[in-house]
Write a protein that binds this DNA or RNA. Structure first.
Lengths: 211, 211
DNA sequence: GATAAAATACCTCTTAATGGGTATTGTTTG
DNA sequence: CAAACAATACCCATTAAGAGGTATTTTATC
């Protein structure tokens, strides 16, 4: 199930840029983007979002106001403030408002994605260089792929399965025998404790091991 | 020959976002991105760029200074200032400095690309409606499912396939015969012009039809 | 150089999926 | 009320995938 992400930022290039960025993570996010508060509010009142990312200063409209207004609609939504203004009092205000994360726009994409992907809990996250006694999302999970000891070639085959290739086609593009592909698929299934390719693809998507 | 574009902005998300945006235009741009002035300067002194996009305020370093410093290296380069600060005096300053365009970050991607693609001349461009300030923009990626005439039950079955269920299991949870499930799968394949469940899942993810 | 891990490949058997049909019963809609 | 669509269900045959093995070669790694 892809996460539904709503982004509100009046910087169109930023809005489109971040949207492309998230689309290309392979996480298959459903993305709704808004550059004005009004249509964004309307959307959030009618649709449940998993993640809501917003700027603080959207066409001179206070992002905090929007968050307060939509407090009820956003109770099951991870809220992330993404802004150029990272003053301590703003961070504290966000925290009190129940915002889940406060990120500056200098944040590396990896960090943003890890915040998006971490479970919705009631902890508060902000960029590490600005933590002052605030709790930080505890773990940036090390690649699950290592945990399951999926090898390079196995990973390669997973990618091709996800692309929709059959074992025969995979054998052809990797210049190996179809029986070898079969063996790899078998080993992958054993390691991940699954028994069909749909579950494999599900696993791959959930654990973000697709590039 | 693909255009070589150099981008300098300390907002990493913006930097990466805009980079993805430009990569996905199909214009085959060569893109070098920098979040600090020093490595950017070094790059520009050694490599010729077709387009140089920079912020004015890169880690508190004045973008104008960088442009002045590199005036000689940039004589054949289209220079674009892309910034959140669009004060009149900044625009005039940029103009005097020989900058080719001054864009605010609210600029639509199309406008940026058209500036990049327009020939290098000595004219000066800035956003036409920059006094008005209100650029409204919102899109929600509309379900492609209607286009392919996937029915409610077919969609239900797609969702269960994605969950990793077999036809037998799907039949059980939907209280229908396994042959019915088979028929539905067949019809789905025909409509989407695919021939295995991996491709189906890929399609579903790409077109965001899983919720 | 020994050992472990990875990659290769085959055999056999079973189960699942796919693609070609046909056909009945509702449901919706112009 | 027809016509179109959706949902149901079965037949047939073929192909693909999955699960149990075994086994050789190549590649790291200690």
């Amino acid at each position: 199930m892809p996460k539904q992400i709503v982004i509100c930022d009046d910087h169109l290039l930023f809005l489109n840029g971040i949207s492309e960025l998230l689309k290309n993570t392979g996480n298959n996010y459903g993305i709704a983007k808004f550059s004005d508060v009004h249509s964004c509010r309307q959307h959030l009142m009618q649709n449940e979002a998993d993640v809501f990312i917003c700027d603080l200063n959207i066409n001179h409209f206070d992002g905090f106001l929007l968050l307060e207004e939509l407090k009820f609609q956003l109770k099951n939504t991870k809220t992330i403030i993404l802004t150029a203004y990272y003053e301590d009092f703003l961070i504290q205000k966000a925290r009190k408002l129940g915002v889940n994360a406060f990120l500056k726009k200098e944040t590396p994409a990896e960090e943003l994605i890890s915040v998006i992907e971490s479970g919705l809990n009631k902890e508060f996250y902000t960029n590490k260089s600005y933590k002052k006694g605030v709790s930080v999302y505890s773990t940036i999970d090390e690649p699950i792929i290592n945990k399951f000891r999926i090898s390079r070639q196995e990973k390669e085959i997973i990618k091709l399965i996800i692309k929709g290739l059959t074992s025969k086609e995979i054998a052809d593009v990797l210049f190996i025998s179809i029986t070898t592909v079969t063996t790899h698929r078998k080993n992958i299934h054993r390691k991940l404790e699954i028994s069909n390719s749909s579950s494999l693809i599900k696993f791959a998507h959930e654990n973000n091991l697709l590039h």
